[in-house]
């Protein structure tokens, strides 16, 4: 999103921001490497199983900026982005607790974030998505979400990044995995703490076991500190959410981590529009290099009935072997047994 976003002192800054973004990206890469992310094989994975995880989401889509003194034009796709994301998360990724806010006021957002924090339990995975106008104060480099009841450029009526960060930190302190996806102008201003590197064994079972057992507080944004587009090719979605939805829908793997997802979305967006999504961790919120892992429940496999596909996630190796041994050696054979007679 979203054209017509405002930026205080928005003079020559666009080019400057681009350079700044490149600089930040460079710094982030260095930072990620310096964190020394490496996965080491362990005999038994410990910690909670993803099977015990409840997937929750708060999805916010703001289109109708009506009483903003003409400063914030109506958006075309934020609500449809939110609705489409809700549908794919519910249908394909087993999100069982989804709240959708359409045209949310500042209070609406804060109330729902606090309510969400109360519902979150120890092992939960929580996704917060925002589509709407964003604002960047060029002097302070402070970013904001703009609710539909914002009054012109009065920043006190906006939702400050630090406020959002505080609410997410609270959610993260209670849950296992927290992911913020922001599709707004300057959403990258939430993300000043570096992207993470992707492990060499990404995609392997061990990888998912490791990252799912570690706490994560991650962010994926539509852009850095830049303007982003609305209504990509009249699709009814912003380019960022268009490609995010596309990745979620076309993904045919049972497990996909946020890093894998964001890498794919970043490439797709950057290849098609003048916009570079970013991803990373929320600084100071307790991230332990874990990963928000999406579990696709309607995975398709050629030649195999849908009902026959079983997704086993985050089971330690020894236990999984026991399960496989039990299933392959006992239950199927019992059903296949010929009838005994006397």
């Amino acid at each position: 999103m979203k054209t017509d976003c405002y930026e205080k002192n928005s003079l020559p800054v666009k080019a400057g921001m681009l350079l700044f973004g490149i600089f930040i990206a460079f710094v982030n890469n260095v930072y990620a490497e310096s964190r020394g992310i490496g996965l080491h094989k362990t005999k038994n994975a410990s910690g909670v199983s993803l099977q015990d995880t409840t997937y929750r989401a708060l999805i916010i889509g703001n289109n109708d900026y009506r009483r903003t003194g003409g400063k914030w034009p109506r958006l075309k796709t934020a609500i449809s982005d939110a609705s489409a994301l809700r549908n794919v998360l519910r249908k394909s990724y087993n999100f069982t607790d989804i709240r959708v806010l359409k045209n949310a006021t500042r209070r609406d957002v804060l109330v729902e974030l606090k309510a969400l924090a109360k519902r979150v339990k120890k092992n939960d995975s929580v996704l917060v998505y925002y589509a709407g106008h964003g604002y960047l104060d060029d002097e302070s480099q402070q970013g904001y979400w703009v609710p539909v009841d914002a009054k012109g450029l009065d920043q006190t009526t906006f939702l400050r990044n630090s406020t959002i960060r505080d609410e997410l930190t609270l959610i993260a302190s209670r849950g296992k995995h927290t992911l913020l996806i922001a599709d707004s102008c300057f959403s990258g201003s939430l993300l000043r703490s570096g992207t993470r590197g992707i492990s060499t064994d990404i995609g392997t079972e061990l990888y998912y076991q490791k990252v799912a057992n570690k706490k994560s507080v991650q962010i994926m944004t539509a852009g850095g500190v830049e303007y982003v587009d609305d209504n990509y090719k009249s699709s009814g979605h912003s380019p960022f959410t268009y490609f995010l939805l596309n990745e979620l829908k076309t993904n045919n793997r049972a497990l996909i981590s946020m890093s894998e997802l964001s890498t794919n979305v970043q490439k797709a967006v950057a290849n098609n529009v003048d916009q570079v999504p970013e991803s990373g961790v929320l600084h100071g919120a307790g991230d332990e290099l874990g990963e928000f892992v999406f579990i696709k429940v309607d995975v398709k496999a050629k030649g195999i009935d849908k009902d026959k596909i079983k997704v086993i996630v985050n089971v330690d190796t020894e236990q999984e072997q026991k399960i496989q041994k039990k299933e392959t050696q006992v239950k199927p054979k019992r059903n296949l047994l010929p009838l005994p007679t006397m």
Partner: peptide
């Protein structure tokens, strides 16, 4: 010998003729 058996969980039942 020909047999047909129905299996339902731990139960099974069927007919054998030979």
């Amino acid at each position: 010998a020909y047999s047909a058996a129905y299996h339902y969980g731990k139960f099974f039942a069927g007919l054998n003729v030979q």
